[in-house]
Structure formats: C-alpha cells, structure tokens
Design a protein around this nucleic acid. Structure first.
Lengths: 376, 376
DNA sequence: AGGTGGAATGGTAGCGCTACCATTCCGTAG
DNA sequence: CTACGGAATGGTAGCGCTACCATTCCACCT
C-alpha cells in the first residue's frame, strides 16, 4: 500500500537541511565557479500557465484570460487552451493569482463559536453557497471576544479577501474601521440594525424575545422567568425584548431574571433553572435564551416532576430540530440560520460582480413555533 | 459614524471600470507617448518588506529572516527591525510568502459535516491549537461523500498546505494518492487502523460499539436493538462492534438492526425507534449509533410511557453534554473529540518542525459512561 | 602572518500569475 | 482607398516575498 516515492517526498520536508545537502550535491560546478541552472521547480513539478500556453501555442496571458474571462477569447483558442489544461492537469496557483491581482479568492468568515449549532448552520449555509464557486473560505472563531475579533480581522485583512462575513453588529471601533477599510464587500449577519458597515442579513432578537414572552403571557403565564447563559449582545437583546413584553403587561420583576456569562449548555440550563426556582418558587413560565437552556429546564422539570406546561410553560429560542421531538414538544422561536448564510453569500457575490443588491439590509424574520410546552 | 473615505474606497471596487477610468486620468503623458510611472501600489498602500528594510537600514532579506528565524539575526538588528515593523504597521503578505516559499502557512482540514457537533468539536480543537501559530485553516465539508473529498483535496493540494487533517481512514484510492503526494504531513483523525497515510489519531468505533452493547447485555438486556442513521464507515464499525458482542452472547438477530442512510437527527431517532418497536415489540434495550438518536429514543419512550431503564435500556455514542442532564441520564460512550483535534495539530506541527512523533498512530480510546438509562 | 571556519548580512533571481499597455487584424465609415 | 475603431492577442513588468548563493567580518587556529 505504501508508495515509496511518496515516502521519499515526505522525508524531504522532514528535514530541510537534508534537502539542502541533496540539492547542493546536484549542483554543477564549471571552471571553479558555481553555475546554477534555472532554479529547480519549487512547485513540485506541477504545470504552470506557461506550460499550458506553450502546449496550446498561445501567449500565457491568453491562457489566463481564457480561464478568467472566457468571453474575451475566441472560441477556437478557448477550446485549444481547455484541451491543453485538461491534458496537463493544470490547476492555477491561488497564491500566485492572489499576489498578482492583489485580491484573493477568499471569503473571510468570523463567528463567535464553532460548536454552537446556531453558527454552525450559518457557516454551513455559507459553505454550501460557495462550494461551486472559485472562492475559498477562511473561518475565524472569535470566542465571543471583541479583542479576538480585532486580532482575526488584522490577520484576515492582509490577505485581501474577496468579501468578509462577520457575526453581529457590535464590533469594536477598531474592528469596524478594519471592516470599513478592507476594500471588499462586508456582510454582517445574525442581527438587524440601522447602521451596517456595508450589508446586513439577520433578524431582530429583541422582537424574537418579545414575541416569545408575549406568547407565554397570552397562554396565561404570569411569573415568567428569563434564563440566559453567555449573555452576548444577541442574548441581551432577547432579554430586552422579554423585559419590554413583561413591562408592557405590568409583570416585570428583576428577580425573574437569571443569567450567567458562562457558555450555554443543557446542563447549565438545568442548573440555572434550579437557581431560578430557588429564588422564585412560584415561577409559572420561563423564556429561555436558547434551546439548550430550554432543554435543560425541561429535563429538570421531568426530574422534579413539575408538570409542563400545566405548572410551568417553557419557550426556547432558535428552534433546533430536537424541540419538535422533545416530550413535551417545546415552543421556540425559529430562526433561519442556514438561509442567513446563503443570503449573505449571495449579497457578497452580487457586490463582487459589480451589482450591489438594492437592499443593503435584509430582515429574514423569525417564526414562533407554538408547541406542547406552552399549550395551556 | 460613516467614514466617507472608506465609502469612496468601496465605491472603487464596486465597479472596476470606474477605477480604470480614474487611474487612466491620473496617468501622465509625455510627448505624445504614454509614460507610466512605477505601477501604483496595487496592494492598497500597505507597507512592504522593502519599506521596513529601508526604514531599519538593512537588506530586505534580513527583515525576512528577522521575522521568520530571529535566532539568525543579531540582537541589535532584530530590535531595529522590530521597531520599524511596529512603526509602519507592517504585516507580511501571506500570498507573497506562499508563492516565494512554495509553502502556504495553511492547514487543510476536511470533515464530513460542519453541523454534526462531533466534528465541530474536533474542528474547535484544531482551531484552538492553531490560534497562536502563524497557520491559517482551510476547512472543507465533504458531506460524507468520497467524491466530494477528492474534489476538495484537488482544490487544497495546489495551495501547498503545511499540513492536511482529514476525517476517517476510508479515502478513495485517488484521495489517498492525493494525500500521499501532497508533500506535507497528513493526519487522519477520528478512527484508528493499521495503515494510515501518514499519521493517525482516534479511537476504535468497533470497540466502542462492542463495549456499549456488552454493557447492555451485562445489565440484563437480551433483545437489544441497534438504531443508526447516516451509516458512514464509523457507524458501520460501531454496528460491527454491536454485532460482535451480540453474536458472542448468542443474541444476534438481524431484525434487531434498524438503519437508514438519512442524516442523523433527534427526530429521526424517534422515528427509527418507532419502526424498530413495530418490527420487534419485545425490544428491551437499544444501542444508538449516536446521541441524537438516543435522545429521540428517550423522548419517544417518554411519549409512549415506556419505562427507562426498566422496560428498555438505552445507550448512546459520543456522550454529548446533554446526556448527563437528560432524565433519566443516558449511558453513552464518551469520545475525546476536542483532544483528537488538539493532538492532530500537535503531531502535524512536530512533523513540520522536523521531528516527527515517534508514535504515528495514537489511540485516544473512549470511556463508557454508565448512567440511569441502563441502571437495571 | 596566513589560513580556516563560522556567523551575520546582503544581492540576485525568481515563485506563477495578472495589470497594463502595445500590437495586429479586421470591418466599417468617410 | 484611407482612416478609424474595436476585438483579439501578446509582451513586459511587476505583485511581495524568499531560496540560493556570495560576501564580509571576526575569532581562532597553525
């Protein structure tokens, strides 16, 4: 199974010194002076655009054009060049291309978490939308940190990406400046707001939080707790929506709110719910910051034999698949994560192509999924 | 808030024709002949290594060395150069660097899914391990398809990545050849096996499946079903482990096995469990391909008032956080996904540095977490 | 004093591609 | 018939960096 040639190649990069000695030995000397031939192909022997041009009997630049703007090359040459490309197995070097054109075919994507399934789905939408394009994706994990976001933008910008997609609208001033001066389309995602850096696709977390809370009030809950983890700006807005609904109904009480900066998880949801109950045993509803928390609440209700929705109504946020299957099924605010990713890419591609979307701010909304957990 | 200069810059790339006209207007003519000065900085005015060299009063190559191999430059110059770098805000251009050195500071990472939290955690381990290194990450989603994996490898290879990390050991022959001839360290992850392309970090899915099944047998289950979705090679090996344990105990019956090629989800787990029960109502245990499925089974048991573990014991795979919090808590095979990502990077970095790990195959094992769902 | 070897630094020549012209060749208008 | 303009193609000169030598300088030996 093992290919000895490949093995030898691997040995090459294992130790650069070894490789140096080899090439030194292979060097020719002539009359005491060292004469070096043309530098041996560092690229590992892959064909270059010049090889294709030679084979097709045209200039290198024509090959370049045939590949990038086929319309500008006559059909005959185009076919000839394509044949040469196929025969040689030529693949353009993206690094050389980026250097020469001062523009890399890369989308920079910054998300606060790779494991939070909400962002994972946005990222999946982005990947799926770009899989047939020449664009690669450079993904960065900001860990919900503005400073980390700044750092990553400073790493991404020098690569001159074709577009940048970032989560949220609460960039630090430096991050915002980096985005503004990146010289490429920028799409902020997952939220909505009046003043995007460039383009924006998302929905209103405030409205989502308010809608879910209003629903709990409608079905007869009165002492409705808010349980939230990792209170990032989006969670804060959901909390604000909750608060607005509660205040409008004259039901708000700060003791109803239980939050933590810790990263969200089902287990943490259970613990926070226990804290909330200890603080306020008469709770008859909870709006959870997200579905992980809601699931933790649901499990604790099972464990403590608290009837859902009879004793306590539960509403979550995001509508993960499991919420419809849970027992009882859990009311949640469905958000269109995958579609946000797709839309962000579509807008960026349009801008790159020169026709920016007329609508710079796209609100994809949300949908309240009423289920058993609030059916009272 | 809006910076008009940035706005203008954006207008520039909106329409290349516009930019062309601008620069054409700025071109000087002299005696009827068009004279172009040195090509205007396409890079957008960012400082280059030559600017730093000039400022520091040294050769460009010395700056390059000071940045990449500080040990080979005297301390005086090093400081001088660092000052110039700081003052100019110089950041090396990764594209130029990759072109000149025929080696990009990029890790190529191929996973079958971005939303499956198992791979998300591997990816997180990889990102966290590389966040302080100069290496970037190029992530590819194979969608559990061998052909897609081939396609992505053909995209990645021309970029001459510093290392490749791929999920699984079941590459197609072409993919395997691409990996072998990539000329960089290759780490296969998530599984173990005798014949890696280069290096390997993972665990035995067969043993995991067998161990979970043996545990169900030990606690007294006899008619133990296997429920699995998206039967990728790893799922197949878990199934094989299940089968081995069942056959060893004289309990195997093909009607106990319920699988589907559909993508795994909690909802699908519930449906498959209903199918399994319809086929075999006397089921007294289930080993689930993964925790999503197990959760679906658990919810269906709640809904159908099937006592867990009394009537049916449930075991899952991967031990997601929620399994310990579920009610009843669910027995699962804990796998070390994050650590696999970290270890893969550590091995690749060691190989890049020239000292390949003595151990090319690392088995990180797994741990059976016995919980209420099998406490009979 | 001359030789030797190593450390520090620099010059040159590309890496593979594309921007920016220049050139050629046609069809059409004058 | 010539001038003109546009379409198709090519040549040249880099993009910003690093590999590969060459050079310098010094300590240390013989």
């Amino acid at each position: 199974m093992r290919d000895p040639r490949a093995e030898a190649e691997r040995a090459g990069w294992r130790n650069d010194k070894g490789a140096d000695l080899l090439s030194a030995a292979a060097r020719r000397t002539c009359g005491g002076k060292v004469v070096t031939g043309p530098r041996s192909r560092r690229g590992g022997g892959r064909p270059t655009i010049a090889d294709v041009a030679r084979k097709a009997g045209v200039g290198a630049i024509t090959v370049s054009r045939a590949l990038r703007e086929p319309g500008r090359v006559s059909q005959d040459l185009r076919r000839q060049i394509q044949d040469a490309v196929d025969e040689l197995g030529y693949v353009p070097d993206p690094n050389a291309r980026a250097l020469a054109s001062a523009r890399a075919e890369v989308f920079g994507v910054l998300v606060p978490s790779l494991t939070n399934s909400v962002f994972a789905e946005v990222v999946r939408g982005i990947y799926d939308s770009l899989s047939d394009s020449p664009f690669r994706i450079q993904l960065g994990n900001t860990h919900y940190s503005g400073l980390e976001e700044e750092r990553l933008l400073q790493v991404f910008a020098p690569q001159r990406p074709a577009a940048l997609i970032v989560a949220g609208i609460d960039q630090t001033p430096l991050s915002r400046k980096l985005l503004e001066t990146a010289g490429c389309p920028v799409v902020q995602v997952m939220e909505t707001g009046p003043d995007p850096v460039d383009m924006l696709v998302g929905f209103s977390h405030f409205d989502g939080g308010r809608t879910a809370t209003e629903h709990l009030i409608e079905v007869g809950c009165r002492r409705i707790g808010f349980i939230g983890a990792r209170m990032d700006p989006r969670s804060q807005r959901r909390l604000a929506g909750y608060r607005a609904a509660m205040e409008a109904a004259g039901l708000f009480d700060p003791r109803l709110v239980t939050t933590t900066p810790l990263l969200s998880s089902v287990t943490l949801g259970r613990e926070l719910f226990r804290d909330a109950l200890a603080k306020m045993p008469s709770l008859d509803g909870v709006f959870c910051n997200n579905d992980d928390i809601a699931l933790g609440v649901l499990f604790e209700c099972h464990r403590a034999a608290i009837a859902v929705p009879k004793t306590i109504g539960i509403a979550g946020f995001n509508d993960l698949d499991m919420m419809q299957t849970a027992f009882p099924s859990v009311t949640s605010v469905r958000t269109h994560r995958y579609e946000i990713g797709r839309r962000a890419v579509a807008m960026a591609l349009a801008a790159i192509a020169g026709n920016r979307p007329e609508q710079r701010i796209v609100d994809l909304g949300f949908e309240l999924m009423r289920r058993e957990s609030t059916a009272r």
